[in-house]
Simulated scan of single mutants.
Amino acid sequence: MKLTYAVVIEQISNNCGAYAPDVPGCISTAETPDEMLANIREALAFHIDGLVESGDPVPVPAMSIDDAIAYHGQALADSDAESMADYGDATSTLSTRFETVEVEISTPQATLAG
């Protein structure tokens, strides 16, 4: 089974980070945006395999790129200065990309959430 998730890739001065809003808790980092696509695909596959092994449902890929853009914008708006202060001087984001990533689920007994 193949699932396609929208992902958010943020580049800062020295690396990139990515997450899939539909899959809470699954994040990854890399040195370049292109490397990040491979890393987040691997992280999603690993995370989903863990969910399946635990008998937990697999998150349904529900967000489109437009939904991910809106979600990311809202997440930034919801973070207040006090909570960001816990991280010290945050490095500013140079760019943000929104992509889709296809993940192969090798376990036929996977149960989709929803």
Rank of each mutant, 00 (worst) to 15 (best):
C16W: 02
C16A: 01
A18L: 04
Y19D: 05
Y19N: 06
P21D: 09
P21V: 07
D22R: 07
V23Q: 02
P24Q: 12
G25Q: 06
G25K: 10
G25L: 05
C26P: 01
I27Y: 15
I27M: 14
S28L: 06
A30L: 01
E31Y: 13
T32K: 13
P33L: 09
D34H: 12
L37H: 08
R41I: 01
E42A: 12
A43G: 08
A45S: 11
H47G: 03
I48C: 04
D49H: 10
G50E: 05
G50L: 04
L51E: 05
L51V: 03
L51D: 05
V52D: 06
G55N: 06
G55M: 02
D56V: 02
P59Q: 12
V60D: 10
P61Y: 09
P61L: 03
M63I: 00
M63L: 10
S64G: 04
I65K: 02
I65G: 00
I65V: 03
I65R: 01
D66Q: 15
D66I: 05
D67R: 09
D67W: 09
D67L: 08
A68W: 06
Y71T: 11
Y71N: 14
H72P: 00
H72V: 01
G73M: 02
Q74C: 01
L76H: 13
S79A: 15
S79M: 15
